[in-house]
């Protein structure tokens, strides 16, 4: 509508220059997008290139941006190594359990906070959000001391155990997941659950039969968030685990594969790529949910 108005109002040559401007703007956009794509994708691509090289090729004085004798040796070596598989197993178990615990706690709590108002529920919702803003770098030292205390008094050794991460990671995932679930639940029309309550549904039924199905996209987004956070977490395992058998993948790769002078960058890069694979695969298949989870934190609520 407005478009035709502009065309009718403007003189002939003016219209032509506008469309030419538009075309040039498009060309420039693509040009800069390619530049930025190169900047953003160089490290992962170089990671992949290096992972296909032998140590001999890495140390040779030839073009580092090309693979002359591609080999899968690095991957095979890693995947047949007990320690690496152990890292992978630890990471997988920790992440899956943390996701389960996180979703169980946060969906139920978000439902209570969004729908079943109780004394202090609004303050608590804000508190949950504030907790999300407290970084783990502030908490690892007091937690370190607390774990030592738990060991002295209760005799439970939390230090140097991979399953300690299952207790710790929910502190990073639960606040944010609760927060975005509150946002999703709050957007569900009140009439829906009122109708269910009038029909005699209990609160549990309202949650499982109405809220969870309706807010499923939000739940998927929160699940992806919880998984990527627990898969990528680096500080807690670095501070609280030391034995090789107790490490999770990111820390395992950084601490055991980098062996000073030994030339195994091919293997390190292969390991890093394998460590990055699960989040990347999830992202490739569920990109829209992944992005919904990213933007939800600031746009909802």
């Amino acid at each position: 509508m407005t478009d035709t108005a502009i065309r009718a109002g403007a003189a002939g040559p003016k219209y032509g220059s506008m469309s030419r401007d538009r075309r040039w703007a498009l060309r420039w956009s693509y040009f800069f997008l390619v530049l930025f794509a190169i900047f953003f994708l160089t490290p992962p691509i170089y990671m992949f290139i290096t992972s296909l090289k032998t140590s001999a090729e890495i140390s040779a004085e030839i073009n580092p941006w090309w693979v002359f004798n591609p080999t899968l040796g690095n991957y095979i070596e890693l995947l047949t190594q007990d320690t690496f598989l152990r890292f992978f197993r630890n990471s997988a178990i920790v992440s899956i359990l943390v996701v389960t615990i996180t979703m169980a706690i946060s969906v139920v709590a978000a439902f209570a906070l969004a729908r079943m108002k109780f004394w202090g529920s609004a303050t608590l919702a804000t508190g949950v959000f504030l907790t999300y803003l407290i970084p783990e770098t502030l908490l690892f030292i007091p937690l370190f001391k607390m774990f030592a205390w738990v060991n002295e008094t209760l005799g439970i050794q939390l230090m140097n155990n991979w399953w300690t991460m299952i207790i710790l990671y929910p502190t990073l995932t639960v606040p944010f997941c609760t927060w975005i679930m509150i946002g999703y639940f709050a957007s569900i029309p009140k009439e829906l659950d009122e109708a269910a309550l009038i029909d005699g549904a209990t609160w549990t039924q309202t949650l499982t039969k109405i809220f969870i199905p309706v807010a499923l996209p939000g739940i998927i987004a929160a699940t992806i968030f919880a998984f990527t956070v627990s898969w990528a977490q680096f500080l807690y395992p670095l501070a609280f685990t030391t034995s090789t058998s107790e490490l999770v993948l990111p820390v395992g790769i950084v601490t055991t594969l980098i062996k000073g002078d030994v030339f195994n960058w091919g293997q390190i890069m292969a390991g890093a790529l394998l460590g990055a694979a699960p989040p990347l695969i999830i992202y490739a298949f569920l990109m829209d949910y992944y992005i919904a989870g990213l933007t939800a934190g600031a746009t909802k609520g």
Partner: peptide
């Protein structure tokens, strides 16, 4: 999307 510790390695 890549875990920061992994991409920093590259």
């Amino acid at each position: 999307v890549i875990p920061p510790a992994m991409s920093t390695l590259s």
